[in-house]
Design a protein around this nucleic acid. Structure first.
Length: 275
DNA sequence: AAGCTTTGACCTATA
DNA sequence: TTATAGGTCAAAGCT
């Protein structure tokens, strides 16, 4: 698939099917097995592409992230967590999902899941990007997605409040720290933004312990805030869907255990954070 | 008036 | 043990 397809698809946005499995992975902590591992995670199968044309799945939902997959090509197996991308192979897309080994303590991992999305495009080709997002659910899987796959505001259907920003040494870009605004939800995300305003990396920490709110609009003043307005707009049109992100269509995941760790310093960091 | 962003200071983990 | 980097807090200002 070409990048042009992405844009086209983004434009046509057929995110209609996300809702379907919203509860499945919508950020909830999945049921856990006796060992403390999420069931679907415990049953984690190999990276087998599964084709389920009749059922669209929002990867973003699954991962609580802004990444959207649309329709027939972006189906994920609820039970396996595998991403069906028969139509494509990893080489077709400039981005990929990176899996990381499960932390020794699965139970703790549940409490502190970390997902990372970074802009591969940056390294691979100069295509305009405005956002990168995605994360895997239940494991330290690293997902790399072309920035143009996701919206700039990284709206993933949840309410986020920025609580800090910092320039980190390892990156030229400042990081913004966000917390989920849902009461008692400890989910956080770190967004690294380039000087041009483009998001180059998103790191999700912890999972949501609540369903994705259909509306995050604020009863009062919110309407005046650009941020709130944006949020409201997104939700109004998407109804609990991550519209911005949902607009991608064909996505190819290279779902494989990555030993890119050596070349991806972020992964090490993630592992550490995921502990 | 409520909620959000900004931003410097503070805290904590790691080397 | 100390220095440094990363992450969080919280006051102030803004929408």
């Amino acid at each position: 698939m070409s990048s042009s397809s992405f844009t086209d698809l983004l434009a046509s946005s057929g995110v209609d099917c996300y809702e379907q499995d919203e509860d499945f992975l919508g950020g909830f902590y999945p049921e856990t097995t006796g060992s403390g591992l999420p069931k679907f995670k415990a049953a984690q199968p190999p990276p087998l592409p599964i084709s389920q044309p009749s059922r669209s799945f929002a990867y973003s939902e699954l991962l609580d992230s802004p990444l959207l997959l649309s329709s027939s090509h972006s189906l994920i197996s609820p039970t396996t967590g595998a991403f069906p991308f028969q139509a494509f192979n990893g080489s077709d897309f400039p981005w990929q999902i990176q899996s990381q080994s499960q932390p020794p303590n699965a139970a703790s991992a549940l409490q502190e899941e970390t997902y990372v999305v970074q802009d591969l495009q940056k390294k691979q080709d100069p295509v305009p990007r405005e956002f990168v997002a995605a994360h895997s659910y239940g494991s330290d899987r690293q997902v790399k997605v072309p920035s143009y796959m996701v919206s700039r505001n990284s709206n993933d259907g949840y309410g986020w409040r920025k609580y800090g920003q910092k320039q980190v040494k390892k990156s030229d870009n400042p990081r913004s720290y966000f917390k989920c605004t849902y009461p008692n939800c400890v989910s956080k995300k770190i967004v690294e933004t380039a000087s041009d305003g483009q998001i180059t990396e998103i790191i999700y920490k912890g999972g949501h312990n609540h369903p994705k709110p259909e509306f995050t609009k604020r009863p009062s003043s919110g309407s005046t805030s650009s941020a709130n307005a944006r949020r409201m707009f997104n939700h109004a049109s998407a109804v609990s869907e991550t519209h911005d992100q949902s607009e991608s269509s064909s996505i190819s995941f290279d779902y494989e255990e990555v030993d890119e760790e050596k070349e991806q310093p972020e992964i090490k960091r993630l592992k550490r954070e995921g502990q």
